[in-house]
Nucleic acid binder design. Structure first.
Lengths: 117, 117
DNA sequence: ACAAGTACTTACCCCAAAGTATGTAACTAT
DNA sequence: ATAGTTACATACTTTGGGGTAAGTACTTGT
């Protein structure tokens, strides 16, 4: 157990910045490499786990379920599992998840304007 | 020198995903804890280094200049230094930086709607 | 003489995110 | 019998972002 100072900036952020800065709030939800990509693929409709895997070949299975779980916890993605064998698990965006379209869209706009692709 | 496998997902991303996914492109520019906050503070006009420091008390000086440098390299922020003593260095948003307003704004919208603050 | 302010720089540490590799349960098709 | 499919789980390692602490050069105020 390595102690973390009570007064560290990290702790301060966890308590204050994350809840008071809306942009950081969003980053916490869709930040990282894979989340926006997963969300993007779910924008075109619900997908099975294996479909997502094929749609994003570079992602490892660990990263895929890990992020799907986090997205569920953040109520951006809904998981529907059918109790059949082989299992059929379908992921879809929640209302909050769908609402992210505006955010991703403005990002794409900016990227196009500013030298990407 | 620890070798990194040629075929690692990371390398693949550096070469492909970063340039082909606009959202990831944006994340690379404004991702992380401090960049959006710094940009936010520059939205209200040019600021001196020390002004930024006072405006964001939790940030360390190392993080502040580090990110200011990265923002310069990404052409989001402009640095203006006057050769006087004590030094006067002013940071301001470039056109690209100002254009980020739409992106940050849509993030704030979403955050308000979805349970932050 | 020396503290204080300005805009940094440098060395070092820590941890969480990301990646690698492998295993599992339950069934189906050959 | 055994290979394949589906949707995961788990142990281990790496790496980069972020943090701490301290120092620098130059000048002004007391």
């Amino acid at each position: 157990m390595t102690a973390v100072k009570e007064s560290s900036t990290r702790n301060f952020n966890k308590g204050v910045a994350l809840t008071s800065c809306p942009v950081t709030f969003v980053m916490e939800k869709i930040g990282g490499y894979w989340k926006p990509i997963i969300i993007f693929h779910l924008m075109s409709g619900p997908k099975r786990y294996s479909e997502l895997k094929r749609a994003i070949p570079q992602i490892t299975e660990k990263m895929l379920i890990q992020h799907l779980k986090q997205l569920q916890n953040d109520d951006l993605v809904h998981r529907d599992a059918q109790a059949v064998i082989p299992p059929v698990v379908t992921y879809s965006l929640t209302k909050s998840g769908e609402d992210l379209f505006q955010v991703l869209d403005s990002m794409v706009d900016w990227a196009i304007k500013n030298g990407s692709v």
